[in-house]
């Protein structure tokens, strides 16, 4: 599913943000990605959802070398990835329902096909009553849950989440963790970037620790 061999990455002419990242995730794996703030967790996730390409080394996603993926292939590979962004990236003028349904619309589904699934998912993340509201009326935690619902609505093969519980209370964090574990149980490969050690302690998931641009696969 994901295989990185001696991957390094730098922005422009700057110094390497990632220096030597090597790890492998098989289908159905669940991993935490942890490290201090600024360690490069978000950069590594950006590389994995194909927003960046490695400066050195080899990164394989679904067996495809990230450096060689064409712009034509890009959308089809991204549809197999679910991403929860740290800054949510919700579309401001779309309702909660329409934001969550967006990946399904992009994939060509009609409202009649996805309405039930979207409502069920909103119910699960506790936002069914806010389905018609705009993101600007939601709290940070609620926006986080909308972002998570959008990332998982199309049942992706790989889920990448950047601090998905950073803006929610411990009870909701636990509930969201269960959602991720449930998705993983159903076959989704999950990589969850967090610095919440308590959250990590609640599961038996393996930990990838990013230190000085180097990942040690624990």
């Amino acid at each position: 599913m994901i295989e990185l061999n001696a991957v390094a990455l730098r922005y422009g002419q700057g110094s390497d943000v990632l220096k030597d990242v090597s790890f492998k995730m098989e289908a159905g794996d669940f991993r935490f990605l942890t490290g201090a703030s600024g360690a490069g967790k978000s950069t590594l996730l950006r590389l994995l959802f194909l927003a960046l390409r490695p400066s050195r080394g080899q990164a394989l996603i679904f067996g495809e070398d990230v450096s060689n993926i064409s712009t034509r292939q890009l959308p089809l590979i991204r549809r197999k990835l679910g991403v929860v962004f740290q800054d949510f990236r919700l579309v401001g003028h779309l309702s909660v329902f329409d934001n969550v349904a967006l990946p399904l619309r992009v994939a060509g589904q009609r409202p009649a096909d996805y309405q039930r699934d979207v409502i069920d998912l909103l119910d699960w993340v506790g936002l069914k009553q806010k389905a018609k509201e705009l993101p600007e009326t939601l709290s940070g935690g609620e926006k986080q849950r909308v972002a998570i619902a959008r990332a998982v609505v199309s049942k992706p093969e790989i889920l990448l989440a950047d601090e998905p519980t950073g803006n929610v209370d411990p009870a909701m964090a636990k509930r969201l963790l269960h959602l991720f574990l449930e998705l993983n149980r159903l076959g989704t490969t999950v990589l969850l970037a967090t610095h919440d050690e308590q959250l990590i302690a609640q599961t038996k998931g393996k930990v990838l620790r990013l230190q000085n641009g180097i990942v040690k696969d624990l």
């Binding site: 712009t71 959308p75 991204r78 991403v83 990236r89 919700l90 579309v91 992009v106 959008r150």
Partner: peptide, 16 residues
């Protein structure tokens, strides 16, 4: 631009 960025990241093709 912002909406386009989101669409690209969730797998929208250019034609879409």
């Amino acid at each position: 631009r912002q909406v386009v960025g989101v669409l690209e990241l969730i797998g929208a093709k250019n034609s879409f």
